[in-house]
Design a protein around this nucleic acid. Structure first.
Lengths: 365, 365
DNA sequence: TTGAAAGCGCTAACAC
DNA sequence: GTGTTAGCGCTTTCAA
């Protein structure tokens, strides 16, 4: 049994070189397979490295190489499953490409975006994958452009008239939203409202609202402004109550995200309304958890694994020196779950008696 | 307007020193506030740094300092919300403590644990937060111990008779499970089955099963072996069918995780059973999404934000040189959702007619 | 209070 | 094929 190495895991390339009676350069060559080395020497080096529990110090390598094979990922939150799934995909793809992932979350707060990115850049990540509040008018992205930092946006999508062109990976949010709303209209819904995350925090939400308006207008129906809700809120009852107390209560709610849709479904039920019988609910994202709900959530499915894989692919391309990058528009699909159905007959214009009281008394959920 | 720096963001401490007409050492002192520097010089340095868009290269610093202020986080998956929430908390706490997070996921595969950790260690993370398959008999943890790498386990809990003592942050899984099952018994349930993630992949699942057995035995009821399911499976129908076709169909199912419980609830409903009327379902984790289900999921709530905060706290302590670390046992609570209720009267011993056919025909969900 | 100089671990030129 | 050497950007003695 060999003696325990002095400071285990801390042997350097020089220690290995000495033990194998070769130069440090040769050790490096063996480790990285960066040049041909004779079989005998290779074996000696490998043996020495193994005996010493040699673990290459990537900090040293990175300093020397002026690149780190580290990627920064900046997302609003992981509480929202679509981002957790995306991160999962990014990490797997990064690992497959021999890169490591450094993570930062911003809590949908543009102020935190700057600090997060700055920290990542100090660590000299080779590139960034990020979802920002507003891709079209982001000082941060301007900065990244100026400094020529490779980055790819996920989920963010630039309007067609946007001045800047930036690398994005997303679905066609507007078209996808329109398609879902058209589906609702096809089922017979006429009064459809949209619930959205706050527009300031999400360019996606704005585009999806446009798609909603497109569909409504095309059908000659009155589109409404979105019912905006801050992203991190956990209770939709009061805004919902507002919407439902309108003279013409909507028979369907199109939500700008699955997270929102799930919350809305729960709160509608708390208010005493049956989904989909009393009111239909549709989401946007296609998170797996939607299939675990009862009824299952009808939603626009974004191909999150492909979004992640594509983003990483593009990013590695950019890092590799590729120049121009067209925005990648991936295909969405509709998942028609049990949360939508044709509208019931003429609905009563009043809420269940329970609803009002339920909200006012702040009944815990 | 100042001339654009040559290679923006790539000015070094030497450039700043030259511009401010001081030594690089002084620049370092100013940047890190590591020693007193006169006001005048400080101002000059700061000014030069700002003009040059100086961004300290942490790779250089880390090489020199032999510590990185990077923390490695190793989790089975982010698809399971409890881990996503935990990572979120870890990242926030790390950022608050001026540390960055490098992420790796293992997909519940012990084989991947090794590669993930090895990669992180090559990056010279200062410490690790991890959830492993089995904390008691993990070669990896042995290695970390041997190499004196600071680490803290989250969710993993060592049995009381475990040989090794390792730093863990968890709830008392056995007691918590017992309490939930006792609650079910208190409601009148007598035939309670447990559904669990595969034991090999989770020491937690084993402990929770023990707690289940404790409760059953204490009540003089027959405890059963757990219905084991691989963690990444997305369909529980066939195993469920097995359980439900027993002579004495269970009136309640205790699941070892919320993920599993949500899947089970959906699949029960697919099989034509009403939760909680026909069968009660309880989970373990307390993920927020449980409150979005209908009925809401009854579950053992683990204080995930505190688990994350505590883990980070302990880890930073270990990194700071602290020696012994007692396992931290955090308080769980029960969240009694709509997915459990007292058992209905004598249930029919047969499944709804739909059930059998539904499974055999592999009806898409 | 500030500067000079050495070196963290590694790799890429360049020699042999 | 293999060795020598210089230096990536930073901090930290040690001197002044």
């Amino acid at each position: 049994m060999p003696a325990r190495p002095r400071a285990p895991g801390r042997a350097t390339i020089l220690d290995v070189a000495r033990r194998a009676r070769v130069s440090p350069a040769t050790v490096s060559r063996v480790i990285n397979e960066s040049a041909r080395v004779s079989e005998a020497v290779t074996a000696a080096v490998l043996d020495a490295a193994a005996r010493l529990d040699f673990r290459p110090n990537l900090v040293g390598r990175n300093l020397r190489a002026a690149r780190t094979r580290n990627l920064g990922v900046v997302l609003p939150t992981l509480t929202h499953p679509v981002f957790a799934e995306c991160l999962q995909g990014l990490e797997a793809a990064a690992r497959a490409g021999e890169h490591a992932v450094m993570l930062a979350t911003t809590g949908y707060d543009p102020a935190q975006e700057d600090g997060a990115i700055e920290s990542l850049l100090r660590h000299r990540v080779d590139g960034l994958v990020l979802t920002v509040a507003d891709a079209a008018r982001s000082k941060l992205l301007d900065k990244l452009d100026r400094e020529q930092v490779p980055y790819v946006l996920v989920y963010n999508q630039l309007g067609s008239r946007s001045a800047r062109l930036r690398p994005t990976v997303s679905v066609d949010n507007r078209a996808a939203a329109r398609q879902m709303v058209e589906h609702l209209i096809g089922l017979g819904h006429r009064r459809i409202a949209m619930v959205a995350g706050s527009f300031r925090q999400s360019d996606r939400a704005r585009l999806r609202h446009r798609g909603y308006l497109d569909a409504m207008r095309a059908a000659g129906l009155p589109g409404q402004p979105a019912l905006e809700m801050p992203f991190m809120s956990t209770d939709a009852r009061l805004p919902l109550l507002d919407a439902l107390q309108q003279r013409q209560r909507p028979t369907a709610l199109f939500c700008s995200s699955d997270q929102l849709a799930m919350m809305v479904m729960r709160d509608l039920q708390v208010l005493g309304l049956q989904v989909p019988h009393d009111i239909a609910v549709a989401g946007f994202d296609g998170v797996q958890l939607g299939t675990l709900l009862t009824p299952t959530l009808a939603t626009v499915v974004q191909p999150t694994p492909q979004i992640a894989a594509t983003a990483l692919d593009l990013l590695l391309g950019l890092i590799g020196g590729q120049r121009y990058l067209a925005p990648a528009l991936l295909h969405h699909t509709l998942r028609l779950g049990g949360s939508i159905a044709a509208p019931a007959g003429p609905t009563s214009p009043t809420l269940p008696a329970a609803a009002e009281q339920c909200v006012r008394s702040h009944h815990p959920l």
